[in-house]
């Protein structure tokens, strides 16, 4: 009986306007993926060249094709998934959502945040991008990380959260 009254006043997560991450981060994802698959291809090449038996060699082109199709498949998923990565900041909490096949939305209230971290990884740095992570006393693998936002914005958010925590 209480909740009908209460819920009406509650700030609603579904009405929140979420903001997409920086378009440039798609390039970062692409470069990461490319690097990964280059290593995979090199490994495959060496394997075929030196280790495998003759009878497998007949399927050499199929092997390359297989890895290549996995590459394009992963790329496709990442591109589609990219537009789903969104975040929102409110006065008292921060939210992040992502996922195509498994949609997820996480909200962390500022009052439970233990510390905030801004990371710049090598490839992201080229595009002046950074990621922001917040940590709570809960299991850290389930805390929130937003990758691919402008470094200046990441620092601003960090500053904002720090201020809110200290109040």
């Amino acid at each position: 009986m209480f909740k009908n009254q209460q819920i009406e006043q509650l700030p609603a997560i579904e009405e929140l306007t979420f903001k997409g991450i920086q378009k440039a981060y798609l390039k970062v994802i692409f470069i990461h993926l490319l690097l990964f698959f280059l290593v995979a291809f090199a490994g495959l090449f060496l394997l075929i060249r030196y280790k495998l038996q003759e009878d497998v060699l007949a399927y050499e082109s199929y092997l390359y094709l297989g890895v290549l199709s996995v590459f394009f498949f992963v790329l496709l998923i990442l591109i589609v998934g990219f537009s789903k990565r969104k975040y929102a900041l409110r006065e008292k909490d921060i939210s992040y959502k992502s996922g195509i096949f498994l949609k997820k939305i996480t909200t962390v209230p500022f009052s439970r945040i233990q510390h905030v971290e801004v990371d710049e990884r090598p490839v992201s740095r080229i595009f002046k991008l950074a990621s922001i992570s917040v940590f709570t006393a809960g299991d850290s693998s389930d805390d929130l990380e937003i990758k691919g936002i402008k470094k200046t914005e990441a620092l601003q958010i960090k500053e904002f959260i720090s201020q809110q925590i200290n109040e």
């Binding site: 096949f101 498994l102 949609k103 997820k104 209230p109 006393a137 809960g138």
Partner: peptide
């Protein structure tokens, strides 16, 4: 609660249901 998460896979989406995780 430290943080809260809502998860929905494509089968759940059709039925308009979700998993709710309290951390």
């Amino acid at each position: 609660v430290q943080n809260i998460e809502m998860k929905q896979n494509i089968f759940q989406e059709k039925r308009n249901i979700v998993d709710l995780v309290f951390q």
